[in-house]
C-alpha cells in the first residue's frame, strides 16, 4: 500500500440524507483508525432539503493535507441515492477509483468508466427494516460508512482497503448519537454484510 497517498472521497447526497455528517464522521473514524491527517469539506451554502449536495473527505496517513479545494477527481465516490446518478457532476465526474451506490436494484454500470470498481448496498432497506429513522427519513449515512469498510480501492500499486473498522464506527456512533448509536452500529454491520460488488 502506498502510504503517502491522500485518499479523496466524494459523497453525493440529497439535503437531509446526512452526506455532510457522513463526511465528518468518516474523518473521525479514520482519525481513530490511524490516519494522521483528515479533512472534511462540506460544499454547502443555502441549505435545502432534497437538493443535491456534495461533501468531500480527504484522508492521509503520512502527509499533511494542505489542499482545501474541493475534490475534482475522487478516488472513492459514494452515491447516497441512485436517482442522483444521471445528474451532471455525479456519474460523469467519476474518472477512476471505486463507486459505492445505495440501491436495492441493479444499476446501469455503463455510466461509469470500465476500470472502476462498483459496489451497491441497499442501506435504505436496512434502515427502514431496523426502524432507524428520524422525522420519517431513513438514516443511511452510518450504514454507508459500514459498507465503506468492506470495499476495495485499486490503482497501479495494487488493491487495498481503507483500513477502517466496524468497531471504530461503533465507538464513534456511541459517542456522537448516545443510545441511538447501537442501532446505527447494527445497521452498519448489516450493510457491511450486504455490500455487493457488481463490477
Amino acid at each position: 500500500m502506498n502510504n503517502d497517498k491522500i485518499f479523496e472521497i466524494t459523497m453525493h447526497g440529497r439535503g437531509g440524507q446526512g452526506a455532510i455528517t457522513a463526511a465528518l464522521l468518516l474523518c473521525e473514524i479514520a482519525y481513530a483508525d490511524g490516519y494522521t491527517d483528515v479533512l472534511s469539506i462540506p460544499k454547502i451554502g443555502a441549505e435545502r432539503r432534497g437538493a443535491p449536495i456534495k461533501a468531500f473527505t480527504k484522508l492521509s496517513r503520512n502527509r499533511e493535507i494542505k489542499n482545501y479545494a474541493a475534490v475534482e477527481d475522487a478516488d472513492i465516490t459514494i452515491i447516497f441515492d441512485a436517482s442522483l446518478i444521471p445528474l451532471p457532476g455525479v456519474a460523469d465526474a467519476v474518472k477512476h477509483g471505486t463507486v459505492l451506490v445505495n440501491t436495492n436494484q441493479t444499476i446501469d454500470v455503463s455510466k461509469f468508466p470500465k476500470e472502476c470498481k462498483i459496489y451497491t448496498v441497499p442501506v435504505t432497506d436496512i434502515a427502514l427494516k431496523l426502524n432507524l429513522t428520524t422525522a420519517g427519513y431513513p438514516i443511511i449515512n452510518v450504514p454507508l460508512l459500514g459498507a465503506l469498510t468492506q470495499i476495495k480501492y485499486k490503482d497501479e500499486t495494487g488493491e487495498m482497503d481503507l483500513g477502517l473498522h466496524l468497531k471504530t464506527i461503533e465507538k464513534i456512533a456511541l459517542k456522537k448519537f448516545g443510545s441511538r448509536g447501537h442501532l446505527n452500529y447494527e445497521a452498519a454491520v448489516k450493510a457491511s454484510e450486504q455490500v455487493k460488488e457488481i463490477q
Partner: peptide
Amino acid sequence: YGGFVLSHTSKP
C-alpha cells in the same frame, strides 16, 4: 480565517 474553507471544514 477563511469562512467555510476553515470554519466549516474539519481537521485534527
